[in-house]
Simulated assay, not measured.
Amino acid sequence: MRVLILCTGNSCRSQMAHGFLQSFDKNIEVYSAGTEASGKLNTKAVEVMNEIGIDISQHSSDSVQKYLGEKWDFVITVCGGANEACPAFIGDVKHRLHIGFDDPSHAVGSDEFIMSEFHRVRDEIKDGFYKFYQENIKEA
């Protein structure tokens, strides 16, 4: 089972989703990428994942170009709001899905509020990807 998780910057939401999906089942090949990959991970995303025992600090922020020639069971986009364009993936894909989330890196306000947004989105990603895992992989 091969899964590619896509977003724009590949620094936050797709990285958290990658970490969760891999934690549910080590036998799944999980990768993440972005159409405009930032080349680095969002430090707050790494921090909130570490809080729950999932280390994504060694992940890399990769361009979607790296994966275009490969075969995928699932390609999942995770961008959220109407202001954000989700990347399209043209390639050998069995199933394309969209599981959208707000981008906590765009949160503005106090440090406490910003971290609360990272926690909220992290928890939503966990729930969304666990549901995906249960319905599409575990029962398959």
Rank of each mutant, 00 (worst) to 15 (best):
N42D: 02
L41W: 06
T43E: 11
R2A: 13
A45M: 14
H59D: 10
F20P: 15
I114S: 00
M115S: 07
M16R: 03
G128I: 11
E124N: 10
A37S: 08
E124M: 11
I90Q: 13
E84Q: 14
D102K: 05
D103M: 13
L4C: 02
P87L: 00
V121Y: 03
C79W: 00
S11K: 02
E124I: 15
I90Y: 01
D102W: 13
V46K: 00
T43R: 10
A45Q: 07
D62A: 13
S57C: 04
C12Q: 04
N50H: 07
F24K: 10
D102G: 04
V75F: 01
S38E: 08
G91R: 07
E47I: 02
C12P: 12
S32E: 09
I125Q: 00
S32G: 01
G109S: 06
F132K: 00
D73W: 01
D92A: 06
E139Q: 07
E84Y: 03
I54G: 15
N42K: 01
E117H: 03
S60P: 04
W72K: 01
L41C: 12
N42P: 04
H18D: 11
H98L: 10
D127Q: 14
S116T: 09
D25P: 01
L68Q: 08
G69N: 02
D55P: 12
A37I: 13
G128A: 08
A88M: 02
Y133E: 01
